Amino acid sequence: MKRYEGLEGILLIDDDLPTNFIHKKVIEKAAVNAAVKSITSVQEALDFITYSGIYEDTPQIPRPGLIFLDINMPGLDGWDFMDAYNRLDQRFKARLIIIMLSTSLDPEDKAMAMIDREVVTFLSKPLRPEIVTTILDRYFK
């Protein structure tokens, strides 16, 4: 298992449970030594990052250094997450890498994602172990 400095956890934000399951297995196959948390809603993800809501008294749970964020979700979507995330206090955003994921073929989605300075890249689903390793090698020591 490879350990990356500054990477205690990886957060998967996707409403599709099978996709989260597959992506968690992909991360395990990439042999990353980090806790992987799957969350299916934008609000819960924001609560997790900010230690609020059901995560208020959970400092022992590793918080993410890397987020894989789906764009298309019912209710609040990936764009809504980014709007809320951009308004968060800097202490919750420090050293967080956000990768947007989608099955969308619309070039507008990628263009919109890359306008946001907090999003480092836009990838098509599904993740593959070599993609995870490339991202980690690029953004973490």
Rank of each mutant, 00 (worst) to 15 (best):
V32K: 10
D83W: 03
Q43L: 13
F81W: 11
R95S: 15
T103E: 08
K93N: 06
S41N: 12
M100P: 03
T40H: 04
I49Y: 12
I61V: 14
N33Q: 14
K37V: 15
D47L: 02
D47P: 02
M82L: 15
S102V: 12
D109M: 00
D89A: 09
L101Q: 14
S52A: 15
K29N: 14
I39L: 14
I99T: 06
E44N: 14
S104E: 06
L105I: 02
I115R: 12
M100N: 04
I67W: 04
D109A: 01
V36C: 03
Y51D: 04
P59C: 07
F92S: 10
I67Q: 06
N72S: 13
A31D: 11
I115M: 09
D80R: 07
M112H: 07
E56N: 05
L96H: 02
V36E: 05
S104P: 08
L105C: 00
M82P: 00
A113W: 00
M82K: 04
D57P: 00
A94W: 05
V32Y: 09
R87G: 13
I67L: 11
D47K: 00
E108I: 09
Q43V: 12
L69Q: 06
N72I: 06
N33K: 15
K93T: 10
Y55R: 00
M100L: 11
L46C: 04
D70G: 05
L101W: 03
V26N: 12
G53F: 07
T50M: 07
V36I: 15
L66Y: 04
Q90R: 09
Q43W: 03
A30C: 13
I98H: 03
L96V: 15
I71M: 13
M112A: 13
L66I: 11
V36W: 04
E56D: 07
P64T: 13
P59V: 07
I67F: 06
A111I: 03
T103L: 10
L66K: 08
Y55C: 00
A31W: 02
D57Q: 04
A31E: 15
F48H: 08
A113G: 03
F68Q: 11
